[in-house]
Write a protein that binds this DNA or RNA. Structure first.
Lengths: 231, 231
DNA sequence: CAGATGTTACGGTCGGCACCGAACGATCAT
DNA sequence: ATGATCGTTCGGTGCCGACCGTAACATCTG
């Protein structure tokens, strides 16, 4: 076996509370500096730097130097997937849902999950697209129908070539079980395209220092007009 | 946030080499006794018992007592997914593939991945079914076509009702990136159905003390006749 | 150049936890 | 009952690693 030790190594890297907090902060897909991450984890910059060096050496995060800053981001979608499935297990484990503070409420309403939407917004979008026949949802995957492809194109939402070319149907959007809603939302290429477009068009705004999203009035209109949901 | 500490807790549980080895041994979906698991991890039964108690308390494994034995198994598919995605990250991390022993070779040839096939057999099946138009494979999901559904039914492979009813097409088989082959294989409901049928019909046999599978002569014939692959 | 900010390197302290030996329950066989 | 196997509990030892000083180095700004 190749992976008996490697598995434990990866897991123990994530298993340290400070490192876990930093990784979680990177779950929105953006790149943060070591200083920001040290504040997130509530440790001194030196300690954070050491942790980040370990994470980078193990390939969990990638680092790009820019001037006197060093930007850290998750190494790729697979790492985000790993963390997300971990949260799912962690949530399924607990008996009673603890207090839901206001900050928590914002997260449950709408947030990013690496490169796509999650929370009630993400789940609502998936459900709306399904009831209107734009996608078909199976147990573990979803598929964009040609009707859905047409409608999105018509709404001005750019889709990558792989999706756009309608060779029959395109099973390109994987599902991601939402840890707060316990229902699937749209991930994969389609999810990333939707999220990118919504951010570019200012339908949603990132909250500073959080993965939570604020839905703008323009976004509320767009989501209602295009997807027929009340966000 | 609900999960900052819970995340680290889960990860640190998996991060201990002995526990990781035991979890990995459970990846074939079967239930093992504490004694077997202690031998797998190369530790004394007492130590293993402590580890297993922790894993059970955290909901990563489930325990059923039977006589003087206590059988331990993974708590569910989500835990298996978590471990699988961890292996994927762990493999992608290493530069050069280390020595591949004979035991490793058997694993790469054919093995179970919780409830479906992996290794060259799993990847080959997925590819064969795609080239013959039974499934359509996207980037992160696959879809069973009506032709594929018919052909499998005709071959006597029982499919669950959800798949069998052909409401247009059924995007039910998720893809699972194979950590040894680095190419997708079929997971999900379809993958589980295939694997279960192959085990029941004695196409493959479990190797004792390993996730590796031995392909029987009958299996070789069946895989060639039905799927047109040389396993 | 000097100051500010951000990052890395080193040495020492301390807490947590994995491990084993030994002993105790539980269950099955004779 | 008695021995045998399987599993868990308890106490004690020892190691690994996270943490923070202090200090040096790199980069941008005034």
């Amino acid at each position: 076996m190749v992976t008996t030790n490697a598995l434990a190594e990866i897991a123990s890297l994530i298993g340290e509370p400070a490192r876990a907090a930093m990784l979680q902060a990177l779950m929105d897909g953006r790149a943060l500096t070591a200083g920001e991450l040290s504040r997130v984890a509530a440790i001194t910059p030196q300690t954070a730097s050491g942790h980040l060096a370990q994470l980078a050496a193990s390939g969990l995060i990638a680092v790009t130097a820019q001037g006197r800053h060093r930007y850290h981001r998750l190494a790729g979608p697979q790492v985000a997937r790993l963390l997300e499935s971990m949260m799912l297990v962690a949530v399924g484990r607990q008996i009673k849902p603890p207090r839901t503070g206001p900050r928590d409420e914002a997260m449950r309403r709408a947030r990013t999950c690496y490169d796509h939407f999650a929370g009630r917004l993400g789940v609502g979008l998936a459900e709306a697209m399904m009831t209107q026949g734009w996608i078909e949802i199976g147990e573990e995957a979803a598929m964009l129908t040609s009707a859905g492809s047409d409608r999105l194109k018509q709404a001005g939402i750019p889709l990558p070539d792989i999706i756009r070319t309608p060779r029959r149907a395109t099973p390109l959007c994987s599902l991601c079980l939402d840890w707060s809603e316990r229902r699937p939302h749209i991930a994969g290429v389609l999810g990333a395209a939707l999220c990118a477009h919504a951010l570019a068009e200012n339908w949603v705004r990132r909250q500073p220092g959080s993965r939570a999203l604020e839905i703008t009035p323009k976004g509320t209109r767009s989501f209602r007009d295009i997807f027929c949901i009340e966000a």
